[in-house]
Design a protein around this nucleic acid. Structure first.
Lengths: 214, 214
DNA sequence: CGGAAATTCTAACGCTCATTCGAAAATTAT
DNA sequence: ATAATTTTCGAATGAGCGTTAGAATTTCCG
């Protein structure tokens, strides 16, 4: 699927890579076609042989980013054994989401960080892709709750928003090398599922907490 | 402190309000002085009687936003009785942070949402204010951990980043009327401190989970 | 009311940007 | 190699931007 055929396709990809990286760093409006062209080793006018406009370039970057994280999360679930625990399912999705966001992909992080500040019409056209990812997460969490792995007195859509917030916001502070993605995934799952408090708010889990102390 | 004196001060505030709102909606680079002026009922050129440049206007909006959330969180702690539980302290800080972000203040949400995409030099000049807020949260969490209210095997700076991520990301999805801020604060504290997983739902023991942590 | 000061308007400037287009160069096919 | 085609270049265009400065207006104060 990702096999480049012609030389033209390679150049297209080079331009898209440059655009994704620059959009992520500077934002959409502040990025000039000159910067993108320079990062792709060509002149600004030459971009128009491959793309019709700056907006068109943006839309393609957004789509690629959304597809990558969608695919990563979906594959993380397909890769699990059928009898995997819901904790493992959530943990795998968190890991896949974070890895795609922070390690592999300027497209994904560009999508996340510039989306709020692009022209409205492009936002609207891109919404279905966002909804697809939301639907994946909704399904993972709903299944876990129905199976009894998540408390049934919580608002799952709010949990989902807060969880995705913790994940997505990492593009604002993550520095490669300083933090490990598996450690992030562990902390997220620990907070989400077990909590990091030791106080006994409702008397539910005193024994577990003692067992967890190191 | 917030008392307006002259008519000029009122106009200044009107301009700042308009700028904060527009920056938040469209981003910094995509916002024109014409839009700000129109939203403040004047002509673009007139803005220069009150502000030296677009950058100067931005810096003032950023500072006001940072101050507001800093003050809100600090006051939320001062308002608590000296013997308040650490759960209550965290809950109060979460509530104050969210309320300022979502309810009271375009300045705060503008600060959060455009910061990554403003000129580098302005970012750098504004960093101390960001650090002040981070320091407040660090103190709240560290005290809770030292008092034994938080597990001592978690990386508090990572917890802080993830928690602030869940809070800050809400500017991207929160719609007034559709969600209640206290309910959000409740869910955050529940997840953070207790977790929403059910006890041994997947048949695994606490020690097993511990083994995965590193 | 009348003059001074404060504030806003208006029109213009220079600059940068996205975009266009015909010529040049590079690549491919014959 | 030569012709045909694809790709890139480079200069030009026009629109819109932040910004400026003087004229026009409003506000303030005696």
């Amino acid at each position: 699927m990702a096999i480049e055929r012609s030389k033209s396709d390679l150049t297209r990809t080079r331009i898209l890579d440059a655009a994704a990286r620059t959009f992520r760093q500077k934002g959409y409006a502040a990025t000039t076609l000159n910067e993108i062209a320079r990062a792709a080793d060509m002149q600004a006018g030459s971009l128009y042989y491959h793309f019709g406009s700056k907006d068109e370039l943006l839309e393609e970057v957004l789509d690629i980013g959304a597809n990558k994280v969608n695919d990563a999360v979906r594959e993380s679930q397909e890769r699990l054994p059928p009898d995997a625990s819901h904790r493992d399912r959530i943990r795998a999705a968190v890991d896949a989401h974070l890895t795609m966001l922070l390690k592999h992909c300027d497209y994904t992080s560009a999508n996340i960080s510039i989306f709020a500040q692009i022209p409205e019409e492009i936002q609207r056209r891109h919404l279905p892709k966002r909804d697809a990812l939301a639907a994946q997460w909704r399904r993972i969490l709903t299944r876990a709750q129905k199976a009894g792995a998540l408390r049934d007195d919580v608002d799952l859509s709010m949990v989902r928003m807060l969880l995705l917030g913790a994940l997505n916001w990492s593009v604002e502070w993550y520095k490669p090398g300083k933090t490990s993605i598996p450690a992030m995934a562990d902390h997220i799952c620990l907070m989400l599922l077990d909590g990091i408090g030791t106080e006994n708010a409702d008397g539910r889990r005193a024994e577990d907490r003692e067992a967890e102390m190191v």
